[in-house]
Simulated scan of single mutants.
Amino acid sequence: MGEARAADGRLSVRSKVFYGFGSVAFGVATLGLSSAVLQPYLNRVIGLPALWVGTAIMATLILDAFIDPAIGQWSDKLRTRWGRRHPLMYAAAPLVAVACIAFWNSPADWPPETVGLYLIGMLVLLRLCVSLYEVPSQALAPELSSDYHQRTSLFSYRFFFGVIGGFGMNVVLYQVFLSPENGGILNRDGYAQYGVLAALVMAASILVSAIGTHRHIPHLAAPPERQASLP
């Protein structure tokens, strides 16, 4: 731990960077799942009715209200040799990549109704996979340090990398994949190519963060053992 934590208990900059870097995935997902991107893709490119698009976006947002607490409770109760948070963080990386590619590369030869149901399902799955990383990762910060200032610093790094990830992919999406030279916002292939890149960036950022903070696992807070008793 000497390199990860200073003698006075402060976390090293390296540890903070590793922790914060994972929020690149959240920033990329926030951009990709925003209505500004989803509406033209689902409505004008895929051809889904506007009512379907609005309902799908609203349903996934409502679902988040139930998914996040459930994942948080699961993570809190999890007991493994890799602690409570890291198993879910590691598992999220490939799942996020697969769900992202599947969503942005929808079948072009299916009936519109079938494609609509497929995309709504993939959108829900993608949000679920992002939460599978984001919820345990947020809960990891208080376990990395009990110091108020250190926790504030950790969340500052998270915010910084989240903004960088979202802004960077926003530039790439509209200046490269959906540039006027490539067909603009109606370029279906552009969204598909963006989905592959977004999947790789999100998976990589999650793995870098999980591996970079892995050394802290033996020193993280663990849930108390509870003995079940009969009434």
Rank of each mutant, 00 (worst) to 15 (best):
A108S: 12
D189L: 03
S35L: 13
P136M: 00
L38D: 00
D109E: 00
M122D: 11
V28S: 10
A108R: 13
G32H: 09
V17M: 07
A91K: 04
A102W: 03
L132V: 05
G20H: 07
V172A: 11
G195T: 06
S106A: 14
F155A: 06
F18K: 01
I164D: 02
G162D: 14
N187K: 06
E225Q: 12
E113S: 07
V163M: 08
D68C: 11
V124W: 13
P136V: 01
P224F: 12
I206H: 04
F26D: 12
I57F: 13
T152Y: 00
E143Q: 12
P112H: 06
Q175V: 03
F159S: 10
G2C: 02
A203Y: 04
V28R: 11
L207K: 12
V176N: 05
V163K: 00
L63D: 03
V17P: 12
V45T: 14
V171L: 11
N170K: 05
L178P: 05
G47T: 06
I120T: 15
V37D: 11
R14M: 10
G72H: 04
I67W: 10
A102M: 12
P223G: 15
M202W: 01
R84E: 02
R84Y: 08
G162T: 10
P111F: 08
L119Y: 09
G190C: 02
Q138F: 00
S106V: 15
A92P: 12
A65M: 09
L230P: 00
R81M: 08
P231R: 01
L144Y: 04
L119P: 12
I67N: 02
A204M: 09
P112D: 01
V17I: 15
G83T: 09
W52Y: 08
G32Y: 00
E3R: 04
A65S: 06
Q73H: 07
D109Y: 06
D147W: 15
A59I: 09
V208R: 00
P136W: 00
G47C: 11
Y174T: 15
A221H: 11
Y191Q: 07
R84W: 06
D147F: 12
F159N: 11
G20Q: 09
W82L: 04
V208M: 01
T114E: 08
R215W: 10
Y174C: 10
Y118E: 09
S12R: 05
L144V: 01
T30E: 06
V171H: 02
N105Q: 04
Y133Q: 08
Y41E: 03
S209F: 01
H149P: 03
N43D: 06
L117Q: 06
A97E: 04
V172G: 02
T55G: 08
R79Y: 06
S205I: 02
Q175L: 11
P94R: 07
A198G: 15
A204T: 10
L125F: 03
L230E: 13
G212I: 14
L132K: 13
L207D: 00
S106T: 10
L123M: 09
P87V: 07
L42G: 14
G47A: 07
